[in-house]
């Protein structure tokens, strides 16, 4: 069992009347990568800023390797933050930016900088200024600069959101491999569930100031703790606050089985293709929601459709699973 690197206890943060973090508690084991996923504006960045020491918590405590760091200033914490924008110093070259991170944290040695330049594939561009390299290269350099401080924990604040989609995909795999290789403990914040699943060993769904559920992708998919987790995962049709059905069990034509079936009327509004499969976007007025349902074949003759849901497939949310 790996030792606990970072422990957060009952963390609360409010700005005036707004409670942004509401009694958040979790642990990060050494070398573990936790993805935190939640809608935009839910307070994910505030969580990172509190962890990094850029904001003081209203209540609760932070522990690193068994030591209370709640009152420790940002520049004294062994925590690095990779921001949404690369924020490279524009007047420093790629190498100077990395060296700056190492020197300012008083952990400079030449071999380490060489190793990092090599690892991010920027040895050739070491003398280039940030304005001369691409967005992806800038973000890799920013990561190397953060790593050069040899942090115990590295925090990522949606670092790929400003990149174009194909580059984002490549960089996800690259950063994930890099973190695993360097055995870095990391917390990765994103609003994209796919990104969260690629980056994290575990995924924490963050909404309303707290983690609704923490678990591996398969647990979150098969046993969502509540409506919020299920709606964020997107793989289910939520029937009410207690029940849901996996999209794969919904059929647009009557099934052959003789079990009990629940039906809902819907209107197909769009047809798109994802990962090579047609996806029907259906508005279901009775549930007050729209569902994106992967279908086998395209039925274009009518917009009106009926969703057939075998009662035996309907599941209940596993409440209180996230503790």
């Amino acid at each position: 069992m790996s030792p606990t690197t970072l422990e957060v206890k009952q963390l609360k943060k409010s700005f005036q009347e707004d409670l942004i973090l509401n009694g958040l508690s979790f642990q990060l084991k050494k070398g573990e990568i936790l993805s935190v996923v939640g809608p935009s504006g839910s307070g994910k960045t505030t969580l990172l800023r509190v962890l990094a020491g850029l904001e003081t918590p209203t209540h609760g405590s932070l522990w690193m390797n068994g030591k209370d760091i709640t009152a420790t200033k940002a520049n004294r914490r062994d925590i690095s933050l990779v921001f949404q924008q690369p924020l490279l110093f524009p007047h420093m070259t790629v190498e100077e930016n990395i060296v700056y991170g190492a020197k300012v944290s008083k952990k400079y040695n030449k071999q380490k900088v060489e190793r990092l330049l090599e690892a991010i594939g920027m040895s050739r561009y070491r003398n280039h200024f940030p304005a001369e390299i691409s967005g992806g290269q800038q973000q890799r350099t920013a990561l190397a600069r953060a790593m050069a401080t040899e942090p115990e924990v590295i925090l990522f604040d949606e670092p790929f959101s400003s990149l174009d989609p194909s580059l984002r995909q490549d960089l996800r795999y690259w950063v994930r491999d890099f973190l695993v290789e360097q055995k870095t403990t990391a917390l990765f914040v994103t609003h994209d569930m796919e990104e969260a699943m690629i980056m994290g060993d575990q995924i924490a769904v963050f909404q309303d100031g707290t983690f609704q559920q923490i678990g591996e992708a398969s647990v979150l998919h098969h046993h969502p703790a509540n409506q919020k987790v299920a709606s964020f995962m997107g793989g289910h049709l939520i029937l009410n606050e207690n029940e849901f059905v996996p999209l794969g069990d919904i059929q647009l034509s009557p099934g052959h089985g003789d079990g009990e079936v629940r039906t809902f009327q819907g209107r197909m509004e769009h047809l798109t293709y994802q990962h090579g499969h047609p996806v029907a976007h259906i508005n279901v007025p009775a549930l007050g929601s729209r569902v994106a349902l992967p279908v086998q074949q395209v039925t274009t003759d009518t917009e009106e459709v009926t969703l057939h849901i075998p009662t035996s497939r309907i599941q209940r949310f596993e409440v209180n699973q996230h503790e």
Binding site: A52, A74, N75, L81, F83, V104, S105
Partner: peptide, 8 residues
């Protein structure tokens, strides 16, 4: 904030 988190 960046300089702070780098330890500056």
């Amino acid at each position: 904030a960046l300089v702070d988190t780098l330890g500056g």
